[in-house]
Amino acid sequence: MRWKSNKRGEKMGHNANLISIDALTEAELRALITRGQAFVDGAEAMALPRHACVCTLFFEPSTRTKLSFQRAAQRLAVDLLSFDVATSSTSKGETALDTMRNIEAMGVDVFVVRHKEDGTVDALAAGAMPTTRFVNAGDGRSNHPTQALLDMLTLQQSKGDDFSRLRVAIVGDVKHSRVARSDYQALSLLGVEDIRICGPQALLPDPAEMPRATFVDRLDEALSGVDVVMTLRLQRERMEAGLIDSLEGYHAAFGITQARMTGAKADAIVMHPGPMNRGVEIEDAVADGAQSRILQQVRNGVFARAAVLERALSRAHE
């Protein structure tokens, strides 16, 4: 298909980077979801350039995201390089840009980048050769677009492709969550009108960041009648910074439990990006129960990321 111009002014047929969800049109997002589902159903990868190469350039620790990108590259039968920041020259003072350019010179087509600072992926893309593509695997607190993509794929598998009728609650440390921001962007793009944001006041963003959402103080109110509960990891450093009083107090007020889930629809699903703090943001009975889609999200991560890499690699030399 032809990729239309995105909100950054990039022509997606010539620049298949994926930096953020809001750089996509609804048609582009749905095309990626559809392609991810095709991989779930056993579709073969399209013919890609000979010796096409992907490098996972992670400056932050990661388990699910990094391994699923590596597994996705294997499914596409492309060459794979894995950057280990712990043993890299960054410890000697090399900048991220110089690191990328040196690896790029080895013949890398697509970089999958994770970094703690907002805007890093954009900066690396701006400093790369025109034919090199970039996929954002999480930067700062701003974006995690492939997590949102796999979440939308998982949601569609359970609820169908008419997102407009869904009621969705996003619960937890929304203020510091790149997952929450990208999920919000994806849900908005797909037409979800009822998005509820709930968490401790100190862990909520400025409502202006999420103008389509309703901010709810009480968890029971946020869960009332919802189809989807997206709970987020509580980063323990928030407690150390004084943003919450205790883990026990957080669980009592905002933890997802079976008792609280009775307020949601009977067929509501529960999602979590991982890693989970069991007994804090979610109890075992919910995490391992029939409504949980957490391991399904992990499985779908491979297929969603294969769709993203295939798109990037197929246009890497155009």
Rank of each mutant, 00 (worst) to 15 (best):
residue 26 E to S: 13
residue 181 R to W: 02
residue 239 M to R: 14
residue 88 S to L: 08
residue 224 S to L: 12
residue 109 D to P: 03
residue 19 I to V: 13
residue 310 E to W: 04
residue 147 Q to I: 04
residue 113 V to G: 02
residue 167 R to Q: 13
residue 159 K to E: 02
residue 178 R to A: 06
residue 183 D to I: 05
residue 108 V to K: 00
residue 72 A to Y: 05
residue 262 T to F: 07
residue 100 M to L: 15
residue 190 L to A: 09
residue 251 H to I: 05
residue 153 L to G: 01
residue 261 M to L: 15
residue 164 S to P: 08
residue 142 S to E: 13
residue 305 R to P: 00
residue 68 S to Q: 11
residue 282 I to N: 08
residue 204 L to Q: 14
residue 301 G to N: 05
residue 55 C to M: 15
residue 41 D to C: 11
residue 93 G to S: 10
residue 182 S to A: 12
residue 170 I to D: 01
residue 140 G to M: 07
residue 288 D to L: 12
residue 190 L to N: 07
residue 27 A to W: 07
residue 50 R to K: 14
residue 307 A to H: 02
residue 179 V to Q: 00
residue 128 A to N: 05
residue 6 N to C: 11
residue 278 R to E: 09
residue 44 E to W: 02
residue 176 H to Y: 15
residue 149 L to G: 00
residue 204 L to M: 15
residue 99 T to N: 06
residue 291 Q to D: 10
residue 28 E to V: 03
residue 18 L to D: 03
residue 208 A to I: 11
residue 100 M to K: 06
residue 189 L to S: 00
residue 200 P to N: 09
residue 22 D to N: 15
residue 30 R to T: 12
residue 1 M to I: 11
residue 238 R to N: 06
residue 306 A to M: 13
residue 188 S to V: 12
residue 164 S to W: 08
residue 29 L to A: 09
residue 133 R to D: 04
residue 225 G to R: 09
residue 85 V to Y: 10
residue 109 D to K: 08
residue 247 L to I: 09
residue 312 A to F: 00
residue 38 A to Y: 06
residue 293 R to Y: 05
residue 296 Q to G: 04
residue 276 M to R: 10
residue 311 R to V: 01
residue 293 R to N: 08
residue 310 E to A: 09
residue 138 G to W: 07
residue 212 R to I: 07
residue 91 S to Q: 13
residue 274 G to A: 15
residue 308 V to R: 01
residue 263 G to P: 04
residue 156 Q to C: 13
residue 165 R to E: 09
residue 180 A to V: 09
residue 235 Q to W: 06
residue 223 L to A: 06
residue 172 G to R: 01
residue 273 P to E: 01
residue 230 M to Y: 10
residue 69 F to D: 05
residue 44 E to M: 13
residue 82 S to V: 15
residue 73 A to W: 04
residue 16 A to Q: 02
residue 1 M to V: 12
residue 43 A to L: 10
residue 157 Q to C: 10
residue 231 T to M: 09
residue 26 E to V: 10
residue 158 S to W: 01
residue 304 A to P: 07
residue 24 L to G: 05
residue 113 V to R: 04
residue 37 Q to N: 13
residue 164 S to F: 07
residue 95 T to Y: 10
residue 287 A to E: 06
residue 146 T to V: 11
